[in-house]
Amino acid sequence: MEKTWYILQLKAEMKRKTWWIIPAAMIAVALLVSQMRIPNGENVSVGLCLAEDPMAEAIAAGLSQRESVFEFIVFEKESELRKALETAEIDSGFLFSEEFEEKVKKGCSKELITFLRTPFSAKGTVAKETLYAVFLEKYGEEILLDGRKEIYEEDRKDLVPFLLERNAEYLKSEEFFRTEVEAIPVQETSDKEELTDIYPIQGIMGIFLFVLLWMTFGRRFEGNGRGICLALDRKRQKRFEYLGYLAAVTIPSVTGIGVVMAVGESRGVVIELFRMFLLVFIGALWVSIVGGWFRSSMALSAWVLAFVVIQLVLCPVLINISAYLPAVNYIKYLFPLGWYV
Score class of each variant (00 low, 15 high):
residue 207 I to W: 01
residue 164 L to P: 01
residue 162 F to L: 10
residue 169 E to Y: 00
residue 183 A to I: 11
residue 177 F to K: 00
residue 195 L to R: 14
residue 197 D to V: 07
residue 195 L to Q: 14
residue 171 L to R: 09
residue 199 Y to M: 11
residue 197 D to P: 06
residue 186 V to H: 06
residue 165 E to V: 00
residue 202 Q to A: 03
residue 182 E to R: 12
residue 167 N to W: 02
residue 204 I to K: 03
residue 161 P to A: 02
residue 173 S to Y: 00
residue 176 F to T: 04
residue 192 K to E: 15
residue 163 L to M: 07
residue 184 I to F: 04
residue 170 Y to M: 09
residue 189 T to E: 15
residue 184 I to D: 09
residue 178 R to Q: 12
residue 181 V to S: 11
residue 183 A to R: 11
residue 176 F to C: 11
residue 183 A to G: 06
residue 185 P to I: 06
residue 203 G to S: 03
residue 202 Q to H: 05
residue 189 T to V: 14
residue 201 I to K: 04
residue 186 V to L: 14
residue 170 Y to I: 13
residue 202 Q to G: 09
residue 184 I to A: 10
residue 171 L to S: 09
residue 193 E to K: 15
residue 204 I to E: 04
residue 193 E to H: 07
residue 175 E to G: 13
residue 181 V to C: 06
residue 200 P to D: 04
residue 164 L to S: 06
residue 178 R to T: 14
residue 169 E to N: 05
residue 163 L to D: 07
residue 167 N to K: 03
residue 181 V to W: 03
residue 186 V to S: 14
residue 183 A to W: 03
residue 184 I to H: 09
residue 195 L to I: 15
residue 197 D to T: 14
residue 199 Y to P: 10
residue 202 Q to N: 10
residue 179 T to A: 10
residue 185 P to K: 10
residue 197 D to H: 07
residue 203 G to E: 02
residue 192 K to R: 15
residue 165 E to W: 03
residue 174 E to Y: 04
residue 168 A to L: 02
residue 185 P to D: 08
residue 161 P to W: 00
residue 190 S to R: 06
residue 188 E to T: 15
residue 206 G to S: 06
residue 186 V to E: 14
residue 176 F to K: 03
residue 174 E to C: 08
residue 181 V to G: 03
residue 163 L to H: 05
residue 176 F to V: 00
residue 194 E to P: 10
residue 182 E to Y: 10
residue 189 T to L: 11
residue 193 E to V: 15
residue 195 L to N: 15
residue 182 E to M: 08
residue 205 M to K: 04
residue 164 L to W: 01
residue 171 L to C: 07
residue 167 N to V: 02
